[in-house]
Amino acid sequence: MRALALHLGLLAVLLALHFALPAYHHGNVARVMVLASYAIGYNLLFGYAGLLSLGHALFFAAGMYGAGLLVQHGGVGAGTAVLAGTAAAAMVSAAMALVALRTRGVAFMIVTLMFAQAGFLTILQFSDWTGGDEGFVLPQAGRMLWGNDLSTPDARYLAALALFAACLLGSLALARAPFGRVLVAIRENEERARMLGYDTQGHKRAAMILSGTISGAAGAAYAILFGYVGASFAEVQYSILPLLWVLLGGAGTVLGPFIGALFMFYLIDLASGVTSAYMLIAGVALVGLTLYAPQGLMGEVRRRMWRGLP
């Protein structure tokens, strides 16, 4: 109950901020919530199952383009587009799981990276449809949901909050469920989990598909809420960013992805206002956190203050 109260309290704070934040931060927090949902999907595979993927940009982009192309060329509505983008990411993650999970360790990282690069090059190849490097802007008519214009700040923020709430509470439920506990057992000692009778390969496959589906839902929501679909979201950096967010916030913690995404977003935002070499400041901060908080921010809270923090 304490854990549930903590996570519901965070959602209540975010809802209250909707009425209090100035326009600039209102838009930033909405963006952070969508990106944090993406990081929650990544955390499921990396933080709980212990599988380090460098190909999650493919899932994010599959959701983004699955939704965006239907709106741009098919004239469908926002709700149908998000569902289609999520389904596209689920199918892509299932296909990747069949191949990538035949490998382990560094080989798994390389295979997932190659899948992501193939997806990026495919987007560039079919530039007549995808817009290539430039991408495309979604028409406002395609960003309507049940009569609500998701391009407006209020509707965008509340939709981002709804997505984040679903991902956060779903992650909390999974962390406490037998499935989540088996993933942790696989992460800690896969051979022992297999000896205890668990289908470790099946659990990892399910984790990868669920992780890709959540990431794809975030990509589809990003396209609809912010009105842009571009190849830059399929590049390697969008596979590295969720890894950084999860490491900073605390891998294997439910709140870690949000804390890491929020910290990293505002660190870069504030540093860029001070110097053009803002990545140097961000890099120094990241090195410091790695040295003095190796388990991430929420990981250190769990280690020092609350052992039962999920």
Score class of each variant (00 low, 15 high):
residue 245 W to K: 06
residue 49 A to N: 11
residue 175 A to E: 13
residue 113 L to R: 04
residue 172 L to R: 10
residue 130 T to Q: 02
residue 137 V to D: 14
residue 243 L to Q: 03
residue 170 G to S: 03
residue 184 V to P: 06
residue 216 G to F: 03
residue 141 A to W: 05
residue 77 G to L: 00
residue 191 E to Y: 13
residue 230 G to K: 11
residue 19 F to A: 10
residue 100 A to S: 13
residue 260 G to R: 06
residue 22 P to H: 08
residue 117 Q to M: 14
residue 305 M to S: 13
residue 181 R to C: 12
residue 129 W to F: 14
residue 187 R to P: 03
residue 237 Q to T: 14
residue 123 I to K: 03
residue 122 T to Y: 10
residue 183 L to W: 08
residue 250 G to M: 00
residue 219 G to A: 10
residue 238 Y to V: 09
residue 224 I to S: 02
residue 145 L to K: 10
residue 228 Y to M: 15
residue 127 S to G: 11
residue 32 V to A: 01
residue 146 W to P: 02
residue 91 M to T: 07
residue 119 G to T: 06
residue 13 V to G: 10
residue 129 W to P: 01
residue 263 F to W: 08
residue 185 A to R: 08
residue 89 A to W: 02
residue 67 A to V: 01
residue 77 G to A: 02
residue 70 L to W: 09
residue 297 L to P: 04
residue 64 M to G: 09
residue 125 Q to V: 10
residue 121 L to A: 11
residue 66 G to K: 01
residue 142 G to R: 00
residue 239 S to M: 07
residue 193 A to W: 03
residue 95 A to I: 15
residue 38 Y to Q: 10
residue 172 L to S: 10
residue 245 W to T: 09
residue 222 Y to F: 14
residue 298 M to W: 08
residue 152 T to Q: 14
residue 116 A to F: 00
residue 120 F to N: 11
residue 251 A to V: 08
residue 214 I to G: 04
residue 294 P to A: 07
residue 57 A to H: 00
residue 13 V to I: 15
residue 157 Y to P: 02
residue 146 W to I: 07
residue 216 G to A: 04
residue 198 Y to S: 09
residue 208 M to I: 08
residue 304 R to F: 11
residue 166 A to M: 12
residue 62 A to W: 00
residue 67 A to P: 04
residue 172 L to N: 01
residue 52 L to K: 02
residue 118 A to I: 15
residue 215 S to N: 07
residue 279 M to L: 15
residue 287 V to I: 15
residue 250 G to E: 09
residue 246 V to T: 02
residue 124 L to C: 06
residue 135 G to M: 08
residue 198 Y to K: 12
residue 207 A to C: 08
residue 115 F to P: 01
residue 118 A to Y: 11
residue 47 G to V: 11
residue 264 M to P: 00
residue 186 I to E: 07
residue 126 F to P: 11
residue 134 E to I: 12
residue 235 E to L: 14
residue 258 F to E: 05
residue 193 A to Q: 01
residue 130 T to C: 03
residue 41 G to P: 06
residue 286 L to M: 09
residue 124 L to H: 08
residue 302 R to T: 05
residue 250 G to P: 08
residue 260 G to Y: 08
residue 193 A to T: 09
